[in-house]
Simulated scan of single mutants.
Amino acid sequence: MDLEFLHTLDVQILGAVAVAIVAVVVGAVFLFSSKKPKVCLDPENFKQFKLVKRDQLSHNVAKFTFALPAPTSVLGLPIGQHISCRGKDSQGEEVIKPYTPTTLDSDVGKFELVIKMYPQGRMSHHFRELQVGDYLAVKGPKGRFRYQPGQVRVFGMIAGGSGITPMFQVARAILENPNDKTKVHLIYANVSYEDILLREELETLAERYSSHFNVYYVLNQVSCLSYAK
């Protein structure tokens, strides 16, 4: 009788230990998964994001900051890809145009767009009218190219005007990754020095990562300005 009792007790103890282990594992999985940042982009459907800040950088360029649903949310945009933005032109007709955020998924809780607004641009009209508190319809990610850290030894880039944003996205992702030793050379063309978008940000990168990043400004009035060190 005593042996049967001890055997029953051992089974009960083992059962209790097994239940405890399962509970710990389930709790750990839940805790780990709950800490993963929420990805906000939907490749099939437009989602609305609130404009929380608008900075006018020049007479026709502004930086728009949009809030994500939570402070820990990420946009979920792979490096090298872009988003589609939907708005209305001056005639009230729907227009969709691709843009590349200047922020990365390391910038949690928000994403930013630097937009040059052209007088006759259909989507430019939508951004000119966009005020803090308004919402922008966004869908993505889009694009076939997706950068993988270390996939090339040297990355050569050529950009003009507002085409700097996808280059800036890739360059920043490379340079801010300590495990990516890729060197980046950027040639950036504009009409005048005042037209250079993200100039301060580019020159900050050139100073901070001088051994891996060189940027050259090509202007209509001046053949070539270099900010390489």
Results as ranks from 00 to 15, higher is better:
residue 148 Q to L: 12
residue 166 P to E: 03
residue 144 R to M: 13
residue 115 I to Q: 00
residue 132 V to N: 15
residue 185 H to A: 09
residue 114 V to A: 01
residue 108 V to P: 00
residue 189 A to F: 10
residue 71 P to A: 10
residue 147 Y to M: 05
residue 64 F to D: 02
residue 112 E to I: 06
residue 115 I to W: 01
residue 157 M to L: 14
residue 168 F to V: 01
residue 97 K to V: 03
residue 136 L to K: 00
residue 158 I to K: 08
residue 90 S to G: 00
residue 189 A to I: 06
residue 91 Q to N: 14
residue 161 G to T: 14
residue 92 G to H: 14
residue 114 V to G: 03
residue 56 Q to C: 07
residue 175 L to W: 05
residue 82 H to K: 11
residue 130 L to Q: 06
residue 63 K to F: 02
residue 107 D to E: 14
residue 121 G to E: 05
residue 96 I to D: 09
residue 131 Q to K: 15
residue 107 D to P: 02
residue 146 R to Y: 00
residue 164 I to W: 03
residue 162 S to N: 08
residue 169 Q to Y: 06
residue 142 K to V: 11
residue 97 K to Q: 11
residue 156 G to H: 14
residue 144 R to L: 14
residue 116 K to T: 04
residue 136 L to T: 01
residue 118 Y to D: 05
residue 72 T to H: 15
residue 57 L to K: 11
residue 139 K to Q: 14
residue 95 V to T: 14
residue 113 L to I: 05
residue 167 M to F: 04
residue 108 V to I: 11
residue 110 K to I: 13
residue 67 A to M: 09
residue 190 N to S: 07
residue 74 V to R: 04
residue 62 A to L: 06
residue 127 F to D: 00
residue 104 L to K: 10
residue 136 L to Q: 03
residue 144 R to I: 06
residue 60 N to P: 03
residue 146 R to K: 15
residue 96 I to A: 11
residue 62 A to E: 03
residue 90 S to W: 12
residue 186 L to D: 04
residue 64 F to T: 04
residue 68 L to E: 00
residue 81 Q to F: 07
residue 176 E to M: 08
residue 145 F to S: 07
residue 116 K to G: 05
residue 161 G to H: 12
residue 77 L to K: 01
residue 173 A to V: 11
residue 99 Y to S: 08
residue 186 L to M: 10
residue 174 I to M: 08
residue 128 R to Y: 12
residue 64 F to Y: 15
residue 107 D to V: 03
residue 124 S to C: 13
residue 105 D to K: 08
residue 122 R to K: 15
residue 188 Y to K: 06
residue 77 L to F: 02
residue 172 R to A: 04
residue 143 G to V: 02
residue 70 A to M: 12
residue 132 V to T: 15
residue 67 A to N: 09
residue 134 D to V: 10
residue 123 M to K: 02
residue 92 G to F: 11
residue 161 G to M: 06
residue 90 S to E: 14
residue 165 T to E: 02
residue 117 M to D: 07
residue 95 V to Q: 06
residue 82 H to C: 04
residue 136 L to F: 05
residue 115 I to P: 00
residue 137 A to V: 00
residue 61 V to I: 13
residue 153 R to N: 14
residue 61 V to H: 02
residue 57 L to D: 04
residue 148 Q to V: 10
residue 134 D to E: 12
residue 177 N to V: 09
residue 80 G to D: 09
residue 145 F to L: 12
